[in-house]
Lab assay of single mutants.
Amino acid sequence: MSIQHFRVALIPFFAAFCLPVFAHPETLVKVKDAEDQLGARVGYIELDLNSGKILESFRPEERFPMMSTFKVLLCGAVLSRVDAGQEQLGRRIHYSQNDLVEYSPVTEKHLTDGMTVRELCSAAITMSDNTAANLLLTTIGGPKELTAFLHNMGDHVTRLDRWEPELNEAIPNDERDTTMPAAMATTLRKLLTGELLTLASRQQLIDWMEADKVAGPLLRSALPAGWFIADKSGAGERGSRGIIAALGPDGKPSRIVVIYTTGSQATMDERNRQIAEIGASLIKHW
């Protein structure tokens, strides 16, 4: 067993022997301040990774656009098919120029040779490549099948209805392509620590998230040296922004954090800054 596999296998073990965790309302004060600064709703939840206990939450059962955070769930569904012998990570998928959609920095470079399922998941999570996500959605049967996968996990809230990039439209009061912070946090925890996926697939999923290259201005910008984070960000229309993450000190994750916002007129930089400040408060009061 590799060191990384050992780390993920012992996530519940280490967490069980940690000192009790206590909620700190100071972080919620910052979440509410972010709402004021952005002029928009902000949803927040913080779960203990081992027990699933909610440590703090704000608007945990209000719907927010998922945006690209759905790509972690998508690759979880792909990995479940791999575990069941219905898919192979090494299978190569070929596609054409007509398949390319807006923001496809990886797939646009491989029109000639195609990409493997493993490479597509890596591109979808680490670079948020939209064509990679659409190609992977095709392998599982489309958005409705991802929703069905989530329902089978016990998540009857999260739903995907459309493809990239239309799913980022974020129309107010439109339930399409949305989740709730509580539902997303619980589902992410199941994917990373539950028995739904094999140990190898859980490790692969967290490795992809740990290698995320496009979430630097968010929670990662607030992390002290030595902290662990595996995350996936999302951005959408109407001032929408979000991030889902597993993080913790001492090089291992111990909490799940989900943050979503929508309806702001603020710039992307300002949305990023507010999420980073929430992260800084979380870490300060850990």
Rank of each mutant, 00 (worst) to 15 (best):
D113Y: 06
V257T: 03
F228S: 12
L89F: 04
A77M: 05
M184D: 08
L197P: 10
W208V: 06
L223F: 01
L218Q: 02
L199S: 04
S122D: 06
R273M: 11
A222N: 13
T139W: 00
T262A: 10
D177Y: 04
G43Q: 04
R59C: 12
S281D: 00
Y260F: 01
T147S: 12
E277T: 13
R162E: 09
A132W: 13
R220S: 04
T116K: 06
A148S: 09
L218M: 12
L218H: 09
K53Q: 01
R238I: 00
K109W: 10
M153G: 13
P65Q: 03
R162M: 13
G251L: 01
L188E: 05
V257E: 02
T193L: 05
G52H: 00
H151Y: 05
L47G: 01
V72M: 12
K53D: 08
A124F: 05
E164F: 15
A211L: 02
G43C: 02
K232C: 15
T107A: 07
R238L: 13
V78L: 10
D250E: 04
L146P: 02
G90S: 07
A266N: 15
K71T: 07
K32M: 10
F70Q: 05
R118W: 15
P172K: 02
D33P: 06
E270K: 06
L199W: 07
S128N: 04
H156R: 05
E169F: 02
D113H: 10
A170S: 02
L89P: 02
R189M: 09
S264D: 07
V101F: 03
D33A: 06
S254E: 12
W163T: 13
Y95T: 01
P25A: 01
P25W: 08
A280M: 02
P253M: 13
G263F: 04
G142Q: 09
I54E: 06
A182C: 12
Q274G: 03
S128M: 01
I54N: 07
T193V: 03
I45F: 12
I229L: 02
D36F: 10
G141V: 13
S80A: 08
T112D: 04
L167Q: 09
L55I: 07
S201M: 13
A123D: 04
M66N: 03
E56P: 11
P60D: 04
N272H: 08
R238F: 06
R81A: 01
E270Q: 15
E46N: 10
T27A: 11
A266W: 15
I229C: 09
R91Q: 13
W208D: 07
V258G: 14
S104H: 01
S104I: 02
N98K: 12
D36C: 13
K71D: 03
V214I: 11
T198M: 02
R92L: 09
L218A: 01
A77S: 07
S281P: 06
R273L: 13
R92V: 09
T267V: 09
